[in-house]
Computed example of a mutant assay.
Amino acid sequence: MLNLAVSYHKRSLLETAMFRVKKLLGGTWNLREHNNQISEINVMIKALNEITGLGMSESIEIV
């Protein structure tokens, strides 16, 4: 039972991440072939990470 719960949680996180990507960067894929779609998704995720990184403050260690 525990394994099923972990799988559901991971799937839920993945669906949330894909929702964010599609909402911010477009809801459809432009390429038709599966391998090209994978590349397109990777580029979108890198762009989303870059956008998210711009909004985060930098933290420094205080000694």
Rank of each mutant, 00 (worst) to 15 (best):
L24R: 11
S7T: 06
A17F: 08
I60F: 13
L54S: 05
S59H: 09
M1L: 09
S57F: 09
E50A: 09
N49K: 05
I38W: 02
S12G: 11
W29A: 08
N42R: 13
S39C: 10
L2Q: 12
A17P: 00
E40K: 00
W29D: 03
E58H: 06
E15Q: 07
T28I: 14
L48T: 00
A47N: 08
N42M: 11
M18H: 10
I45L: 11
L54T: 04
L54R: 09
G53F: 07
R20K: 12
L25R: 00
T28V: 12
M44P: 00
N42K: 13
S39L: 15
L13P: 00
Q37S: 03
E61M: 08
N35M: 07
Q37E: 03
N3A: 13
S59V: 11
E15C: 04
S57M: 08
M1E: 13
I45F: 05
S7W: 05
L2M: 08
A17T: 01
N3F: 11
K22A: 06
G55L: 14
I45Q: 06
Q37D: 02
N3P: 03
I62K: 07
K22F: 06
K10F: 12
G26N: 00
G26M: 01
K10A: 11
L2E: 13
T52S: 08
V43L: 15
H34K: 13
L13E: 05
K22Y: 04
N42Y: 12
K22V: 00
G55T: 14
E15H: 10
K22T: 01
L13T: 03
G53W: 07
H9D: 12
A5F: 08
L54F: 06
I41L: 15
L54P: 01
T16M: 13
M56P: 01
S59E: 10
G55F: 10
V43W: 05
S57V: 04
S39D: 15
L54Y: 10
E33W: 07
N36P: 00
L24P: 03
A5W: 05
I38K: 02
S59D: 08
S59Y: 12
L25I: 02
A47R: 10
M44C: 09
M56F: 10
L25P: 00
H34D: 11
M1K: 06
K22P: 01
N3S: 09
M56K: 15
Q37A: 02
L31T: 10
E61P: 04
R32G: 03
S12H: 15
L2K: 09
E15I: 02
M56W: 03
N30H: 09
L2Y: 07
S59A: 10
K10R: 15
